[in-house]
Amino acid sequence: MRRIGHNISSAESLAQLIRSFCCILILTFPNLRAGSAEAETIETDLTSHQIVVDINFSGASITLFGTTVEKSGPDGRDRPDVVITVEGPAQTINLQKKSRVAGIWLNTEKQTFDNAPAYLALLSNRPLEEITTSENLLKLGIGFNSLAQELVAQNLRSGSIDGQAFSENFIRLMEKQSRFHKDTKGVTFVGEHLFRAKFKIPADVPTGNYLAEIHLFRQGILQGVANSTFNVHKAGIEQLIYSTAHEMPFLYGILSVILAIVAGLGASYIFRNR
């Protein structure tokens, strides 16, 4: 269920996602010791589906709203638990390790993570270990532990000897840069059915499609899953500069030089009476 390496095209509609999810649910449910045949559903939405990175972008904050829709009626069951994962587009990230060579610390080892999510938020209403078992979380692909496993597996495939250490440090550094984020009080229930969760998108986050998956648990058993997507994209002068620099680099170089010459000429004009 983990979405590493999976790119959702922006054209893909929410309906299609839900449909594909239903398939996944049907496939997954027999393994989950699901309590009841009729699953509870969740309805959610985000406060924003488009994050625009422009010249004044310094990160964004998105709130996810949701409500549980109980099909079997409120027959005095335990309070629900909600676990939300928000995953950014896959990215190629290198993790470098320094060691001392002739008195100088330099990068000597490198591990490339080809399919690591560029952003990962993990929000829940209480600590994950109180919500369900760790085996369940791993099976569902929820949490940093399951990401670490995935990364270790990836590293073993690419032949790195110290996959475990590299994966752990990778996650640690991503957390340090606010790219990965864990909040066990990130989901707040407003009343019995309505809940909300807030998460931050840092300023240096990559553009692309983001997927929020909302998991509803009762007594440690997954009851239902919903999801919601949003898109981060550059716009305005930001987009113009970035795309010119990458698609027409020669023109961009010439324009940069012209800008500098104009600035230099302007300066000597303004301060000419010296």
């Binding site: 290198n94 060691s99 610390w105 990778f170």
Partner: peptide, 11 residues
């Protein structure tokens, strides 16, 4: 010795 011998590098 750097505080952190690991560092991320997004190309």
């Amino acid at each position: 010795k750097p505080d952190d011998i690991y560092s991320l590098a997004v190309s």
